[in-house]
Each structure stands twice: as C-alpha cells, then as structure tokens.
Amino acid sequence: MTGILTETRTVTVERELAHPPEKLWRALTQPHLIAEWLMNNDFAPVVGHRFSLRGEWGGVLDCEVLVVEPSKRLSYTWNHVHEDRAYNLTSVVTLTLTPTAKGTHLRMEQSGFLPEQKQAFHGARHGWQGFLAKLDTLVATLD
C-alpha cells in the first residue's frame, strides 16, 4: 500500500546584503542578536539542539537545529502547534549565505506548507521580508 503524497509549498526570499558572511552568521546564530531581528529564543548553533522562538503575538515555535555550516548554511525546524489543527505548521527554515563581490547573497527557504495552509504561506512570505529587512539593519550596526 502506498501513502498519499502531499505536495508542499516553499517560501523563498533572496537578498543581496552589503555585509560579509561571517558578520551575518553572528546575527543568525547569537541568541541576543536573533531576538533583535526575529524573535526571543534559546538558540544554540549545535545540530540536534532544541529551542523555542517566542513571537510577540504570544505564540511559540518549537524548533530543532538540523544543519550548521559556519558562515555558509543554517537549517532548523519551524513547528507551530495550534489548538485548531488546521493551523498546525511543520516546516524547515534553511538560510544559505554565499559570498559576493559586495557582501553576501542570502537565500531563505521555508519549506513544508501544505496546499490548504494558504494563510500561513502568505504570512510567511510577508513576514520573512520584514525579518530580513530587520536583519540587514541590525548587521549594519555590528562591528
């Protein structure tokens, strides 16, 4: 018997940032900096580390670090359990940093949106634009 294959959708946001990958990496992996551009957290850049992201709306995301390649790639689960199961989200965020002549090409992918999760998908598309703009502003202030 074969399982039903469910097609998932991915939000992808790409930005060219005028900062070296090492500087961006700090903002992606240090908890006090992550809190400045994303959410309050107890993150550690260690594969298998479980952490929470706590949103201003009161929601909590349960996460686990999947990949840590310093100054190159970071990946973690991004899971939201909601009392209304229709709003549950099981996804993976992958941030890829590629050095460029002027800084870094940052690619953010959040994969795992089910077809019926249109509100979460569009919310993530909008939300990541804002998060990455805040990231760029924050990194510009770092030494």
Rank of each mutant, 00 (worst) to 15 (best):
L53E: 01
R107E: 09
A27K: 02
L28M: 08
H19V: 03
P45W: 12
H105G: 05
L53T: 01
V67D: 10
Y87R: 15
D42P: 04
L53W: 00
G48F: 06
A124C: 10
D136N: 15
W128Y: 02
L142C: 05
D143V: 14
A18H: 10
L89V: 14
F113I: 04
L138K: 05
T77S: 07
L74K: 01
A133G: 13
L138S: 08
T141R: 15
Q117A: 03
S52Y: 13
L95C: 09
D84Y: 07
W57A: 13
G55M: 07
W37V: 00
E36P: 07
R73I: 03
W25N: 07
E69M: 09
Q119E: 15
A101M: 01
L28V: 09
R125M: 15
S111D: 12
A140N: 12
H19A: 08
V139C: 05
P20R: 11
Y87Q: 14
G127Y: 00
V13S: 08
P21S: 02
G103M: 00
L66G: 02
G55V: 06
E22I: 03
D84F: 11
W25D: 03
T90M: 15
T29F: 07
G58Y: 04
A140T: 13
N41C: 07
R54L: 07
E109Y: 03
K118C: 09
V67P: 11
A120N: 11
E14F: 02
I4G: 14
A124M: 05
K102M: 05
P21Y: 02
L89K: 01
S111K: 06
E7T: 15
G55K: 07
L38D: 04
P31T: 04
H82V: 04
R125C: 12
E109W: 03
R15T: 02
E14Y: 04
K134C: 12
T98C: 07
L38K: 00
V46S: 12
V92Q: 13
T10R: 01
M108P: 01
M1P: 13
W57M: 13
I34W: 05
C63L: 01
V13H: 06
N79K: 05
R85F: 08
H19M: 09
A44P: 12
L24K: 02
R15C: 02
S111W: 02
M1F: 13
H126F: 13
A133Q: 15
E116I: 02
T6Y: 12
M39R: 05
T8N: 08
A120E: 14
W37E: 01
T6F: 12
V11F: 00
T90A: 15
H80E: 11
A86K: 15
A133M: 14
T90L: 15
Q110T: 03
A101R: 02
V93D: 04
A101Y: 00
V139Y: 08
V11G: 00
V68Q: 04
E116A: 13
Q117V: 02
S91D: 06
W128N: 00
H49L: 12
Y87I: 09
G123S: 06
P20A: 08
V65H: 00
E69F: 10
V67M: 04
K118T: 14
A120R: 11
Q119W: 14
H122E: 15
R26H: 09
D62P: 07
F43T: 07
Q117C: 05
L114S: 11
K102W: 05
E69I: 10
E22N: 08
W37F: 04
F113S: 05
L97F: 11
L61F: 10
